[in-house]
């Protein structure tokens, strides 16, 4: 579904991605794990069109999307819930969700079905739908960020550190919901520092170090890998 070949991405003179290649197949949950600053978010930003690779290619459903503007990439079916949630603080929960239909919805067209799906996945959001987004708790904001990206009707969902700053209980729930979203037919590329949780949920995983992919395997095998255990799973 998504094939990235030899991506080189720079911030000024600093090379953040040094030839990264990976793929995501339809229906999968794939996780990218790695330390802070390894380049995980850079990969997602490049796929979403916020950053441009200097070299390399990104093929989505067989078509090159490297030159597409960000809104076109969303229109084609790749949505992202960015790191740090980034909900629109001055809009209500429901307005946040509505705004994310921008890629496909003409003015006046209904979006009730999408809204119901999101409220079904995250019942807490329905209760808070008239509340401004800044007033939500961290967990609720993360639900809103993911729910919002689902409003774009994605085929491929990019999740950047959804567990960041959440209590372990909430992380459990959230990951269960991510599994549910995947079972409803959305392919998922998950970036996480919480490697243990991510590998338990995902089908396959990649380990990223300093802008280079150092390991790629089935998630079940990565969990058992001694190097992964030592570096990311606390021994």
């Amino acid at each position: 579904m998504l094939q990235c070949e030899a991506l080189h991405v720079f911030y000024g003179h600093i090379e953040a991605l040094k030839g990264v290649s990976f793929e995501v197949r339809e229906g999968e949950i794939v996780t990218l794990i790695g330390a802070n600053g390894a380049g995980k978010s850079t990969i997602l930003k490049t796929v979403s069109g916020l950053l441009r690779a200097r070299r390399g290619s990104i093929a989505y459903l067989g078509e090159e999307i490297q030159r597409c503007p960000a809104d076109e990439i969303v229109r084609r079916g790749i949505a992202q819930a960015p790191e740090g949630r980034r909900v629109f603080p001055g809009l209500t929960v429901e307005e946040n969700l509505e705004v994310a239909t921008a890629s496909w919805r003409r003015r006046g067209e209904p979006y009730q079905a999408e809204l119901e799906k999101v409220y079904h996945l995250f019942p807490a959001l329905r209760e808070r739908r008239r509340q401004l987004a800044w007033s939500l708790s961290g967990g609720e904001q993360q639900m809103l960020a993911i729910g919002r990206s689902l409003m774009a009707r994605p085929k491929l969902l990019l999740l950047d550190e959804p567990s960041l700053g959440l209590a372990p209980m909430l992380v459990q729930q959230l990951f269960a919901t991510i599994g549910e979203i995947n079972r409803q037919g959305v392919t998922i590329l998950l970036v996480e520092q919480n490697a243990f949780m991510a590998l338990r949920l995902a089908h396959r995983g990649y380990v990223l170090e300093n802008g280079v992919i150092t390991l790629a395997d089935e998630a079940a095998r990565l969990v058992e890998d001694p190097k992964v255990k030592a570096a990311y799973l606390g021994g």
Partner: peptide
């Protein structure tokens, strides 16, 4: 009260997030 108005608000509040939501910034 309008969709366009809310898209403008969203863009003003967080341009990058607006891009990620498919808004033509």
């Amino acid at each position: 009260k309008t969709f366009l108005g809310r898209k403008l608000q969203a863009t003003a509040q967080d341009q990058e997030a607006a891009r990620l939501m498919g808004i033509k910034v």
